[in-house]
Design a protein around this nucleic acid. Structure first.
Lengths: 125, 125
DNA sequence: CTAAGTGCAAATCATTTGCAACCAG
DNA sequence: CTGGTTGCAAATGATTTGCACTTAG
C-alpha cells in the first residue's frame, strides 16, 4: 500500500480508492483489511489522515509539510506549498496564549486542469 | 437557532450541541428538525459547515473570515485571526494555474484555558 | 388551499469491530 | 505455539430521507 501511495498516481487516497487500486494491481483484499492497514500506517506516522467535508477520509504519505487544494470539480486533493509563515504561529501563541502543535490548510477551488477545461460541460475526471 | 448561535456561548456548534441547547431553552425539537434547519442556514449562507476529523460536522455563524484552533483537550473549536496573507493566494494561483475560491485553516493544539490548566489531570471541559 | 416546517421511524454511508481461520516466525 | 493478518458479517455513529401531519400565510 505504501508503494501504491508512493508511486504518485494520486496524492491523497480514500479507503475506497486504495481498495480499488489494490485490486487492480492484483492485490485484491477486503475493505476492512485496507482500512486496518491504512489506520496502522497513519498510527505509525507513515501516512496522515485528512478529513474534508465530503465525508471521506483520505490518507497521504507523510513528507514535507504542505497545504492542500481541494478541487470542487474533480474532487482531487492536490498538494500545494504551505502558505503560512512560521512566525505567524509564534505570534498567535503569544497573542492568544494557546499552544499550536499542528495545522492544516485546505484551499477550495479548481485545480489547474479543471480550470483550464473552463466551463466545458464535461463530467469531472 | 440563529439567535442561539449568535449569543456566543459557543462559536461552532455540532448538531447534537444545537439539539441539546435548543431543548434547554425550551425549544425542544426532533434531531432531524435541527439537522434540516442547520442545513438550510448553511445553504442560505447564514452559517457555514466545518468538518474536522472527529467525525462531527459543526456550524458557525458566517462573519468576517477567521481561522480555527481545534483544542485537542476540550474539543472546542476556537476562532482565531486569519494567518494567511491575501497576496499569497494570488501568488499561488499564478504559480499553479489553479483558481482559489475559498480556504479553511485548522490549527491543532491547546486553547488557552486548557494550556493554562497544563498537565493537570482534570477531565476536559 | 399551498407551501413550509415537524416528529418519527427507517435508510444511508463510511467506517469500525468481533471473530474464527490463516500464516509466518 | 504465538502474534499479526485477513475475510466476512454484523455493529456503530452521524447524518439523511420518506412520509404523514400540522401550521402559517
Amino acid at each position: 500500500m505504501v508503494a501504491l501511495m508512493a508511486q504518485g498516481e494520486r496524492h491523497a487516497w480514500t479507503l475506497e480508492e486504495l481498495h480499488i487500486a489494490l485490486g487492480r494491481q492484483g492485490h485484491a483484499t477486503d475493505f476492512s483489511s485496507v482500512f486496518r492497514a491504512a489506520e496502522k500506517l497513519a498510527a505509525d506516522g507513515i501516512t496522515r489522515k485528512i478529513v474534508l467535508d465530503d465525508g471521506r477520509t483520505r490518507f497521504e504519505p507523510v513528507g514535507v509539510h504542505h497545504d492542500h487544494l481541494y478541487c470542487t470539480r474533480c474532487h482531487e486533493l492536490v498538494p500545494v506549498p504551505c502558505l503560512i509563515e512560521h512566525e505567524r504561529f509564534a505570534a498567535l501563541e503569544r497573542a492568544t496564549g494557546a499552544a499550536i502543535l499542528d495545522h492544516q490548510v485546505v484551499l477550495r477551488g479548481l485545480c489547474r486542469d479543471c480550470r483550464e477545461r473552463g466551463s466545458e460541460s464535461g463530467a469531472p475526471a
